[in-house]
Nucleic acid binder design. Structure first.
Lengths: 136, 136
DNA sequence: CTTATAAACTGGAATGATTCTGAAATGAGA
DNA sequence: TCTCATTTCAGAATCATTCCAGTTTATAAG
């Protein structure tokens, strides 16, 4: 699984003409370090605060939104729970439990047909890279 | 990817009648060494300072401007806006379990019509990584 | 080797735009 | 209704860059 790299994110910030601030660096650090899961804004906020004292929750939200709008990270939105943010833009599917909130990056063998997914996993598609408009 | 050569730059300085100063040499060194990234003025400044103690940020700005005005370096080294990270958004679906909490990365076969996924799999599409929010 | 002088350098201040903050508002779920 | 995640907003702070005035320096001419 590919991991996000700090330099990559910073480089993309520059390319997009976004400014590099201590807050953004702290958030990037948090994203890089909390790699074992799909962190929500609150967790990122807490982690970022360890890096830079002056980070507000509003900024975390705004920054994550900014980042995902610019393709630096992926924002995973769900009906009934806190948003999660995914720094891993490689080929994978995010599965999220609506009940307990756990998120897993899972790689399915190429032989598995999409139509078999519901039967085998009972999961719900919440994100696709091919441009499908979202649906409730 | 084009490479910058130190001797080239120095030679061009002479041709253009520009003076060869320690600061400019330091900046050239910095440019040569960090050419794999998209260095901003600040990064070049920091790098140049390692070479020559006496370099100011003002000088870095002025020098970079001077250099690009004289064609020594291409402007794209500093302010190109296009994304150099191609292929970040790969073909995959994010799946979320509504019941048990598992997450699955599913690689979409070329034959599968994205908009058929919800119907065929029983999954729900709520987001796309192309920057178009598809969230319901 | 000097000297003259235009070019280059410096630190700080100015600039315009972006970003941050904290509190209050919103909105959906329990 | 209560709670919690998220958004909004206006003013404050910060960022990247340029500008400026005074000082230093590279280099060509003597």
């Amino acid at each position: 699984m590919r991991r996000i790299k700090k330099e990559d994110l910073i480089g993309q910030l520059k390319e997009k003409g976004l400014k590099i601030t201590p807050q953004r660096l702290a958030i990037i650090d948090a994203l890089v370090e909390i790699r074992e899961m799909h962190p929500g804004a609150t967790l990122i906020f807490n982690e970022a605060r360890k890096k830079a004292k002056r980070v507000s929750l509003s900024t975390v939200y705004a920054t994550l939104k900014e980042f995902s709008e610019n393709g630096l990270i992926k924002q995973l939105e769900f009906d009934r729970m806190e948003n999660r943010y995914d720094g891993n833009l490689s080929e994978h599917i995010n599965l999220i439990c609506k009940r307990c909130g756990k998120i897993i990056d899972y790689h399915i063998p190429a032989t598995l047909e999409p139509k078999d997914i519901p039967r085998k996993s009972g999961f719900l598609v919440t994100d696709t890279p091919t441009g499908i408009a979202g649906t409730a």
